[in-house]
């Protein structure tokens, strides 16, 4: 295999995965809207509504406000979409090998996850609107809030894998390859459940959903960060949200629920990959339903200071408790091993 064919293969897979990410992400949004509508005793839009919305936005005029900084204002949505798509290249989708999975690990994914948010912040500040400015400030505060609990989850899982002797514990392929539930004892299971809860609570904030949607808060800031965006730029931001929804679902699945159908049932090679992909999508839908749809239907929006308290006090503590339980579990395991 020459370098050229490897690069060609990566580019091909990148295109395929990106297209898959866009389509699956938009369908996820459609499913979310439909389920939320049914829970609120409404009929709700058809599943393909997000596609219709994107098509409409793409033909609409793209307005750049007079006191915006045009290059930054126009660049932010592109960066947001591209960085969300890039994350997808590192995350295993079913039993398919992620195209860049070998070149980056969970730490990189964590950094990449901040880029769409940072792009939105830059775009918000560049809009030159007081609503967008307040929204951008809130987004930054929210990011500071949820990054810490998210880091605890990532470190906790990787550390436990390392303690169990897994090579390259931060690589998503090794995390997915060694389901962490299998290598821990009862204490560790309790710890993992706590970490799972923390990840579930970080997800709506990553995706700017109720109750953590203070940066967009329709009734307060009329869309906040996105208030000045229209047409193509807004379409790009919507696509980026769609891809991020898939990414967060895929991340939770890769870390906590990595099992594939093909490992339980013997299937022919081609069928197995398709079955695994469908099973993976089903898991993502389930994760999204619980962490996004159910939460946003059942709660009111927090105030920004409450968001920070929720993350820094309650969920950081829950995360740390989970981490401690994992450590205790590992120590017990070592003791048992020695005995």
């Amino acid at each position: 295999m020459t370098l050229v064919t490897t690069i060609g293969e990566i580019i091909l897979w990148t295109v395929i995965v990106s297209l898959f990410g866009l389509i699956a992400g938009l369908f996820l949004l459609g499913i979310d809207r439909k389920l939320a509508a049914h829970m609120q005793a409404r009929i709700g839009p058809p599943l393909r509504q997000p596609f219709i919305d994107i098509r409409k936005l793409l033909v609409k005029e793209n307005i750049v406000p007079e006191n915006a900084i045009p290059w930054l204002f126009n660049m932010a949505p592109v960066i947001a979409l591209v960085s969300s798509l890039v994350i997808l290249l590192y995350i295993p989708l079913g039993s398919l090998i992620s195209p860049l999975g070998m070149y980056g690990d969970l730490i990189l994914v964590m950094y990449l996850l901040t880029i769409p948010a940072l792009a939105m912040v830059a775009g918000g500040f560049a809009s030159g609107s007081p609503y967008a400015t307040v929204g951008a400030q809130r987004e930054m505060v929210t990011m500071i809030g949820y990054e810490f609990p998210l880091a605890i989850v990532v470190i906790g899982i990787a550390w436990r894998l390392w303690a169990a002797g897994v090579a390259h514990p931060f690589l998503l392929s090794s995390i997915a390859g060694n389901p962490v539930w299998g290598i821990v004892g009862p204490l560790g299971i309790a710890g993992l459940i706590l970490l799972l809860i923390v990840l579930a609570v970080v997800t709506p904030a990553e995706l700017s959903r109720i109750p953590f949607d203070t940066q967009e808060a329709e009734t307060e800031l009329a869309g906040g960060l996105l208030v000045e965006y229209s047409g193509r730029n807004l379409a790009l931001f919507s696509l980026s949200t769609a891809v991020k929804t898939l990414v967060m679902g895929a991340l939770a699945v890769a870390i906590f629920f990595p099992w594939n159908l093909s490992s339980f049932v013997a299937l022919p090679a081609g069928v197995a990959q398709v079955a695994d992909l469908l099973f993976f999508l089903a898991k993502v839908v389930l994760v999204m339903f619980i962490t996004v749809t159910l939460v946003r239907v059942g709660m009111a929006r927090f105030r920004i200071n409450q968001v920070v308290t929720v993350y820094w006090v309650y969920f950081a503590l829950i995360g740390l408790a989970g981490l401690l339980l994992l450590m205790a579990d590992s120590a017990l395991g070592t003791v048992a091993g020695v005995l």
């Binding site: 829970m39 609120q40 005793a41 409404r42 109720i210 109750p211 949607d213 808060a217 329709e218 009734t219 239907v297 059942g298 709660m299 009111a300 929006r301």
Partner: peptide, 16 residues
């Protein structure tokens, strides 16, 4: 009021 708080489920319920 529920809608202003970002609690749309309660809005739909009350209005029904």
């Amino acid at each position: 009021a529920a809608h202003e708080l970002g609690f749309d489920s309660l809005l739909h319920l009350t209005w029904r």
